[in-house]
Structures are given as structure tokens and as C-alpha cells.
Design a protein around this nucleic acid. Structure first.
Length: 574
DNA sequence: ATTAGGG
DNA sequence: CCCTAAT
């Protein structure tokens, strides 16, 4: 969140000498930006997903390592907002833009639902949210996790599609029109590579000067980093109340636990691989492999992940790109924070984890498979409706959150990589045999294995070494706030800049601000054609240049004895 | 804990 | 963004 509280104090292009504002550090307010959290809890959901997805995707020769490695990998298909009138009071969206400071996003629902669909037709790829694709981004990095032991290497490109359903459904769809006598083996999540990176979205506190274009955020360097870097870090920027963050203006960071995820992928895939190896030798990578049906296994294709009731509040002056990023972050958070998987058969929850699939009615030769639903549920915490006022102060206050827009977010897995799936395996001829299942492990483990097992110490250490904060491009509003703060405070007092303009933006450290200023200065110096990401208004860049020039000069003069007249003169000029 | 600068 | 050295 960007605050402009220092703006009023100084006019445009007015600068203060550094000596003025510097307060003794002892007197400065301290804020604890980072909180500790149980790593295990935090990673439950994503670990689980990693496990599930790992199984599913590996089985079919693809991988979702990219998704797991960074769940921003999403393509948004269509967006439609619907607001429930019955749901009470407040207008869910600040359409007027008059109070852009209160924009927030929060999931309203208690649980999210993953809908498992069993499909056997090639047309199962149809989307539920309409046909007008609206891509907003994805990854393009080629991540190849190295897996020990069986040395399984994945290099497929996951393509995950997230869409906002065109209808607000509160019930778990049961996919009735999908015949279920057979299932394909192409349970896949893979990321569409459209050269647009994602990261969490920071809700702009000020939106009147919003950019006019859909932002393009790209940091190709990430590619290199992701591929080669050995990440280190700790459990910083964790938060046990993920949803609260949305009401706190997305101030928290959600580090991507890459290594951790890889570990789990490795584990699950390794297990899977071993299991499968027993059945079919020689199909290590699964690519193009024609799977031989095996008895008493259920093969499932999870087509969509349903995440109902994400609450999004955003000024109408915000950009489409902003909205997309908000949704993106919401989905990311949903995927990454402590959730467990629930299972429903024909709409009934299956609570007994010890039941066999067969006992539950999940078997290769029945018709229950078409109404098998997986749901994401909060794993431990109480309903994640904790929030706080937009002012960002008192935390833990309860707000009537559920007044809102009722939007469905469907995370649909899809597969367009025909190379991985020979056409004959997609055709109808193999239906019967396909129905006899591959994916032997995934479902079983979903139902029985504790998704979050205790990690060995070595694993934990590895996980801890995987922290990297998600990339959160500065919005124009944030840049504006930063520029104004620096105009006022100078370039050497990032802590004060933080306090002045980003006090409520916990995810923006003074180092971040310093770095951003650095890049801003650079951006301002290069030609517009070379700039990437959401375009920063030239006017802002000019101010960046001005301020930068001024303060660097100021710094010079501080080193060399300065005269009073010089100082005064500088002030007058600026 | 901050600052400054390279990676 | 991360990492480090130096305050």
C-alpha cells in the first residue's frame, strides 16, 4: 500500500535538506515486517498439490514443475464478475474510485473446491468459462528439476489455465454431461508459455494516475535465476493468516518455496515412477508412452480446480492488468497456503480416509467417477475471514467479508501438447482400456496419505534454502509515491522513505525501495523502447531524474565542504 | 538495523 | 530480488 502522507508536506519539486528530517533511530518506530510461521503448515497445500499434480502429470508424461515451482503460472481465460445481492450490504466494488485506498481482495469463501473430472472425450478440453480467452500471463522458463535416485528429469511444459467462471456457482459441479465409462490418462497441468510473467499484485492505493495500458511485466533475468540459482533464505515473510493479507492490501509476501516444492515433486514422482516402473518398464519419461491398462486401478483426469468466492474489490480506475494480477495473486495464495484436500463422491464428502477407493465407490468400472470432486479446504486455521481495516492498523479485526462478489475461479488443467499425447491415445478407441487406470498413486495417496508428512531435517534445511520472495512489480501508484518520497527525503534515507510512503506495505522493504529507485533511475535514462513492464509515465521518470540529480549533487556537496549560499541556491532552484 | 552497491 | 560489506 502506498501512502502519500508525506506528499502534503512538500510541494512538487520541493526538497528538504537531509539534515532536517532525520530522527534518531532510537526514536523511530519499529515495525516487525516478518513473522514466523510454521513452515509445515504453510506448505501443506502446495505440497499436496505438488504431490498430486506430480503424480498426475508424470503419469501422462508431462509435468507441472513450473506450476509448482511457481504457482503464478496461470493463464486466465475469461473474467466475469457477479455480485450477490442476497449477500448483504456493502457494495463490493469501489466503482467510483473515490476511495481507492480501500481496495482489497479477499477470498470470501471458506473453502475452495477442486473439481475432479473424469473425462474420456477429447473435447473434454472445453472451458467452462466461455470461449474468449484472455491471456494474462505465464512463464516461459524451462525448469528442469533434477531428481535423484531414479534420475527422472522433467522438462515438459505445464500449462495451467485459470479462469473466472462466467457463472457464479456455489455448488460443486458434478459434470453430469461427461460420460464416464472411460478416462484418459492425460491428467495434465501445464503452463502456457506466452512470455508474460506473473507475480503477486500489489493493490494500488492510489489509482487516479493509473496506467492506461495493460502492464507487461517481464523480467527475463528471472529465467536465468530460476534455472541456475541456488536459493537461500529463511522463513521470512510468512504469515499464518493468508487471507488477511488481501485485506491488508496485499502487503505480505508469499515467497515461492521452490526447492521445497521440488523436493516434494521429486519424492512423489520418484514414488510414482517406481510404482509405475513395476508395471511398465521403459517408459521413464512417459512421453509418448502408450500405457497398458492395469487391473483395479482408477485413472482420473482432474480437469478443473474450482475456487469459489474470491472477493475482489478494485477501483474502476485500475487497469485490467491490475485486476488480472489481483486474481492471479489470489489464486496463488489459495494454492500456496495451508489447505487440505477434501474428496466428494456424488456430492457427498468422504471423510473416512481409511476407506478404500473401491469402498467409496471409486472404481474403474462404475459411474461414480464423473462426479468425483476434490476440494480445497482450510487445513487448520479457522475460517480465513480475519481481516483488518484498510488503514492497515489493527489486525485481527473481523469484517463482514462475505458481502461480495461471488466469482468462481476455475483452475483448469488442459493439455495441448499433442507430442506428449499421440492422437490415438486421445481418440475414442482407447476408452475402455484407458478406464483401467494409470495414476495409481495419486488418488490413493490423496485419500490416505497425510499430505504433509514430517520432513526430515535435511529436507527442512533444503526447504529453508528455497525462499525467494515473489516478484511484485511496482505499480505506477507506488512509483509515484516513491518518487515523491524521494523528492522529499533524498536517496540515502530509505528507511525514512519506507516510513513515509510505504509504511503499510509490508512487502516493500527499504531495500526494495532503494532497488526500485535504482531501476527507476536506470529506466529513466534508457529509451522508452528498452523499457519493460508496466510503463511508467514519462512525467514520473522526469521527476526521478530530477530528484536523482538533485540528491546526488547534494551528496557531493556534503562530502566537500559546502557553503551556505550554495545550499540556499540549490533549494531555490528546485 | 540501515545503507550502499554488486549480482 | 538477493547477498554482502560496512556502518
Amino acid at each position: 500500500m502506498v501512502s502519500h502522507k508525506c506528499v502534503e508536506e512538500v510541494g512538487y519539486k520541493s526538497y528538504l535538506l537531509p539534515a532536517n528530517a532525520r530522527a534518531p533511530r532510537s526514536a523511530r518506530k519499529r515495525r516487525s515486517i516478518e513473522k514466523t510461521i510454521s513452515e509445515d503448515d504453510n506448505m501443506c497445500a502446495i505440497d499436496l498439490l505438488a504431490t498430486v499434480a506430480g503424480h498426475l502429470s508424470f503419469e501422462s508424461g508431462s509435468s507441472i514443475d513450473k506450476l509448482i515451482e511457481d504457482h503464478r503460472v496461470v493463464t486466465q481465460k475469461s473474467v466475469k464478475e457477479e455480485f450477490l445481492e442476497e449477500e448483504k450490504p456493502l457494495m463490493p466494488v469501489a466503482l467510483s474510485g473515490e476511495d481507492p485506498y480501500q481496495g482489497s481482495l479477499s477470498p470470501c469463501g471458506f473453502s475452495s473446491v477442486i473439481t475432479g473430472k473424469v473425462e474420456n472425450e477429447a473435447d473434454g478440453f472445453s472451458y467452462s468459462g466461455g470461449s474468449d480467452a484472455c491471456q494474462v500471463g505465464s512463464f516461459s522458463e524451462d525448469i528442469k528439476p533434477d531428481i535423484d535416485g531414479d534420475a527422472v528429469v522433467l522438462d515438459a511444459r505445464p500449462n495451467v489455465v485459470v479462469s473466472l467462471g462466467s457463472s457464479s456457482r456455489t455448488e460443486v459441479p458434478s459434470n453430469g454431461n461427461c460420460s464416464s465409462h472411460g478416462v484418459r490418462d492425460d491428467v495434465n497441468l501445464f503452463s502456457r508459455d506466452d512470455d508474460e510473467n506473473f507475480s503477486g499484485y500489489i493493490h494500488p492505493r492510489v489509482t487516479k494516475n493509473s496506467p492506461r495500458t495493460v502492464p507487461r511485466i517481464g523480467d527475463r533475468r528471472i529465467r536465468k535465476i530460476l534455472a541456475s540459482r541456488h536459493w537461500k533464505g529463511s522463513s521470512r515473510h510468512a504469515d499464518t493468516k493468508p487471507w488477511r493479507n488481501y485485506y491488508l492490501h496485499h502487503q505480505r509476501s508469499y515467497p515461492i518455496k521452490k526447492r521445497k516444492n521440488f523436493d516434494h515433486i521429486s519424492d512423489s514422482i520418484t514414488d510414482d515412477y517406481r510404482l509405475r516402473t513395476k508395471m511398465h518398464r521403459g517408459s521413464r519419461k512417459g512421453q509418448g508412452a502408450s500405457f497398458v491398462a492395469s487391473n483395479s486401478h482408477v485413472k482420473l483426469r482432474i480437469k478443473s480446480f474450482r475456487v469459489p468466492e474470491l472477493f475482489i474489490e478494485i477501483p474502476e480506475t485500475a487497469t485490467v492488468g491490475s485486476l488480472k494480477r489481483m486474481v492471479m495473486e489470489a489464486v496463488s495464495t489459495l494454492l500456496s497456503d495451508g489447505h487440505r484436500v477434501g474428496l466428494m463422491v456424488h456430492g457427498k464428502k468422504v471423510r473416512d480416509d481409511n476407506k478404500t477407493l473401491h469402498q467409496t465407490g471409486i472404481s474403474q468400472d462404475n459411474t461414480h467417477l464423473d462426479s468425483l470432486d476434490f476440494s480445497l479446504e482450510p487445513s487448520s486455521e479457522l475460517p480465513q475471514l480475519l481481516t483488518s481495516h484498510p488503514s492497515g492498523h489493527a489486525s485481527g479485526e473481523l469484517l463482514p467479508v462475505c458481502q461480495a462478489a461471488n466469482m468462481d475461479i476455475v483452475l483448469e488443467s488442459d493439455n495441448h501438447d499433442s507430442a506428449l499425447f499421440p492422437s490415438d491415445s486421445l481418440g475414442k478407441n482407447n476408452v475402455t482400456e484407458d478406464s483401467k487406470a494409470m495414476i495409481p498413486v495419486a488418488l490413493t495417496e490423496l485419500a490416505s496419505r497425510p499430505p504433509c508428512r514430517k520432513l526430515k531435517r535435511s529436507e527442512q534445511q533444503q526447504q529453508q534454502a528455497a525462499q525467494r520472495r515473489i516478484r511484485r512489480p511496482f505499480s505506477v501508484a507506488e512509483v509515484e509515491a516513491l518518487v515523491q518520497a524521494v523528492e522529499k527525503l533524498g536517496t540515502g534515507r530509505w528507511r525514512d522513505v519506507k516510513l513515509c510512503a510505504f509504511e503499510d506495505a509490508d512487502h516493500r522493504t527499504y531495500v526494495d525501495l532503494k532497488d526500485k529507485w535504482k531501476t527507476l533511475v536506470h529506466t529513466a535514462k534508457i529509451s522508452p523502447q528498452q523499457r519493460r513492464g508496466e510503463p511508467v509515465p514519462q512525467e514520473l521518470l522526469n521527476r526521478v531524474l530530477n530528484a536523482h540529480g538533485y540528491w546526488t549533487q547534494q551528496q557531493m556537496q556534503l562530502q566537500q565542504p559546502e557553503t551556505q549560499s550554495q545550499t540556499t541556491e540549490a533549494l531555490l532552484i528546485l
